[in-house]
Amino acid sequence: MIEVAGLTKTYGAKRAVDDITFTAPAGSVTGFLGPNGAGKSTTMRMIMGLDRPDAGTATIDGKPLIQHGAPLRVAGALLDAKSVTPGRTARNHLRAFAATHGISKKRVDEVIEMTGLTAVAKKRAKRFSLGMGQRLGIATAMLGDPSTLIMDEPVNGLDPDGVLWVRNLAKQFAAEGRTVLLSSHLMSEVQLTADRVVVIGRGKVLAQGSVADFTAQAASGAVTVKSSDDTALTQLIATEGAEVTATTDALVVNGLEPARIAELVVGAGIQLHELVKSNATLEEAYLRLTADAVEYHATTQEGAAQ
């Protein structure tokens, strides 16, 4: 379990992390979301004891990482795939870190196999593709069979097979009662992987809770309906007191449940062609929440995409 309380980090005049408090509980995958520059990586580095907070605490399983007698058994982190000396082979990189805790060669071979690096274990890291580098980073994080896994953009550079593998790894980890905290920009992936989300923007926590609750809040509740006689249907719906907007080929209804709309259609003897309730996606919920918190806006130029 990761517990962050009142964590603050200031670089000069800028508050990169501003009084952040959240928990990533054991047995779940917590997605850490936020725009670029929001403070996700800084927070993760402080949890791992790399950067010193100006205020607040970050603990893993009740203590700061430095106080644990076997840090690799407590937490493994993939913060940046470029954390390997290029001239060293993958296997030797793992052996070197296994040695700190007296972890056996057997375990080194296990994590190599687990991450699909068996074929390239004897290759020097400089020859690794980005995906292989990510896998090596994950293998290193898994060396001590840790109770907490922290990953910063773990699916960067992974092929679809790899993305699926990370998703299953995270879910399996959580199913075993461990803690997973992963940051990502790939909303669709986080929606499939995470049970909880913590959203930060401009260094502050904007929301935290279960993925289901978070996305439900953003649901607009609109229902799209297409029938054989939209004009008549519009009248019926208006009589019910709901709002109807006609788009090019369908009606968008606000304020009426799909079940009631279906009743109206059938009752009027009209044929129903399409009835869709719009479910908010995590992406919609996230974009809505962070709209004001984005630091580095990209702009599209008029006529640029011709």
Partner: peptide, 14 residues
């Protein structure tokens, strides 16, 4: 220069 310190200070935080 290699970025390995991230792993070194995880395995050996002190």
């Amino acid at each position: 220069s290699s970025g390995m310190y991230r792993v070194s200070f995880t395995a050996v935080p002190n």
